[in-house]
Design a protein around this nucleic acid. Structure first.
Lengths: 199, 199, 199, 199
DNA sequence: CGATAAACGAGACGGTACGTCTGGTCTTGTG
DNA sequence: CACAAGACCAGACGTACCGTCTCGTTTATCG
């Protein structure tokens, strides 16, 4: 009868973002150290309300992060495919270098312990981004800037895998230089037909 | 002066492996759900003893796993570089498909919350494997099967990143087919000089 | 405008009796463990409806119990006073030995925490019974079987106090033998004139 | 190895007494409204410590009250039995009129919901007092001031039952006048041989 | 006979306490 | 003096009820 309070929902999500350090000033907490009690306290909401609507802490974090904060790094349609790809990779790398990256990393970490968390992350976040990149590569093939006989999915993997590796293993910084390398690498083999002709 | 009890150390490490399901029969626990208390109980050792010698649960796991269980998938010296690389990737992928992969994934997950854990993992485990692959690629360049103008480090990234992505994101199975794809992909651009000549 | 729903009232009272184990089969609950929520659930009634008409759980229990279940153990008018007293005490003791006794005990218990509950119990239940006994004793005095110089109120206390003590302290069973003892005791001093003459 | 901390035990018991209003200034709480959390908070003790050593709130209250606060209203040996009885009843009634009475009443109330609480009360508190009174009555019989053919246990009941009734039902005040009445009543029948001779 | 106003079911909500659990520290013997 | 045994404080867990508060939705008079 009485429908869900949007105010409470927002309070929970905002409190979660605040505690994670996404918004506000403080340094923020781990997802792991983030507690439901703290969210409830910060949000001025009852614990029961959180448990009523979310089944796990990770679900709250995911909703807070993905649906309310994360900008779906878009792919530009107005650029040639190669340029759009380069632009997209730069944008992703730049974002992942900051707080957003830390939270994505922690969601993946949570997913190692809870398959449903990983599923949610993959379906609600990762899949969409990847498909946008695959579509972009296919556009590149139509445009003739990417070899038509290369598998777009594999190229997408070549683009994304190093980003996630660096995000998670932190073996080197996520910076613009790295973004350039990635695109170059991914297209070195399957890549730019014209430049290959120049070889 | 009573020096550190090697018996206690072994008891702790063995208990850890048992509880993680690495040895013994049971299904094993998460690293996350693994508790110091349970280790102490299983090992017949006092909690204080564990805290005295290890600073975190992850450190115990790492020591138990890396120094006592993990086989350092070696690189074969008796094969041509390309074959050795292919062999190595197959071996890694096969191992990561099992329990070993789950624990590596969980150590990386823990590392997202604790930099020292990640450092330990990178220095004690990952770095060595990667350097072996880099060396292998350099051997391939000397042997002439890999283009000399390619950066061995980048190729190593092209090899490993997709493996870790699949290990952590579980978007597709870690199997022999995948191992083949990786090698092919990684060498597509920077790869086999001979095949490029055929273009 | 719309008057109180008798159907809801009955549903609440019946649900209360059922949950207390007074009616139905099950073992029943404590008054303490009985919850408004459970009553509402069982009765198919909104919590608000209960709170609208009753101020406390104890009030619901009292109404359910007293006005709908409790038989007002009556005093027989057709017997000589002494026989009627004996009959009454036996009846009370017998009833208190069962479920009725447990609930009376629990209402008194609730009354220790809430004066209004105790008031309600005293006014709505206890007072009436006690006055009936006092009247009976006065009849005995008129009939000459009880000494006229004894205070009827004190004798009533001598009759009832041991019953309530046993009900609440459970130091010995509430049985027929006990009922006999009580009457004998209460009348030993102030009691049967004839027997005293025999002294 | 490590034995129970007496400091923690005392802290818990003292906090309990303070919260119940037995010591300190405030108005105090019900036993019912007294919470384990509040005790732990007040005592500066972990909840787990309380649950480790006591199985229920009532047990804590009992131990706090009986073993540390309640003075075991003693029976004077230097007076003739009848005078000692009168003295004892006055003392008990006086104590029960205050905070001590409220807590005894609440322990009995708790006992209506939990047999172990009642057992503990009966064995640890009530039994001892009653036996002292029975012994006193027997002394009176030896001294010749109480009829030898009366059952001391029944007389003890006649003495105590009205006190507990008034304590629990609060139908009339627990005062000195009442104490006098009780003794007179109890001894009216089985009582003072000399006065009976005067009849 | 249709408007209106209370009573009602449903149940969301902020709270509070429950009893359990684990983490990490500290204490007290034992070998 | 390293160790086991384990008591301890701290505080989060997820659950259960509390009593309050909208919400529509009956339902019974009254204009």
């Amino acid at each position: 009868m009485v429908e869900r309070s949007e105010a409470s929902r927002r309070a929970v999500l905002n409190a979660t973002l605040k505690l994670l350090g996404v918004t506000g000033s403080g340094p923020g907490t781990n997802v792991q150290k983030l507690t439901i009690e703290a969210i409830a306290r910060e949000a001025g909401v009852s614990k029961a309300t959180i448990y009523r609507w979310w089944t796990s802490k990770a679900e709250v974090v995911f909703e807070a992060f993905v649906s309310d904060y994360l900008s779906h790094t878009s792919v530009r349609e107005d650029l040639p495919a190669l340029d759009a790809l380069r632009d997209h990779v730069h944008a992703v790398v730049e974002r992942y270098a900051g707080q957003e990256g830390r939270i994505v990393a922690q969601m993946i970490a949570e997913g190692q312990y809870d398959q449903t968390v990983l599923d949610q992350f993959m379906n609600g976040f990762w899949r969409g981004r990847r498909e946008a990149v695959v579509a972009l590569i296919e556009r590149g093939q139509v445009e003739g800037s990417i070899r038509a006989d290369a598998d777009p999915a594999l190229i997408a993997t070549l683009v994304y895998a190093p980003i996630y590796q660096r995000l998670l293993l932190r073996d080197a910084p996520l910076d613009a230089e790295f973004a350039d390398e990635i695109v170059t690498l991914a297209l070195a083999g399957a890549g730019e037909v014209t430049s290959r002709h120049a070889l």
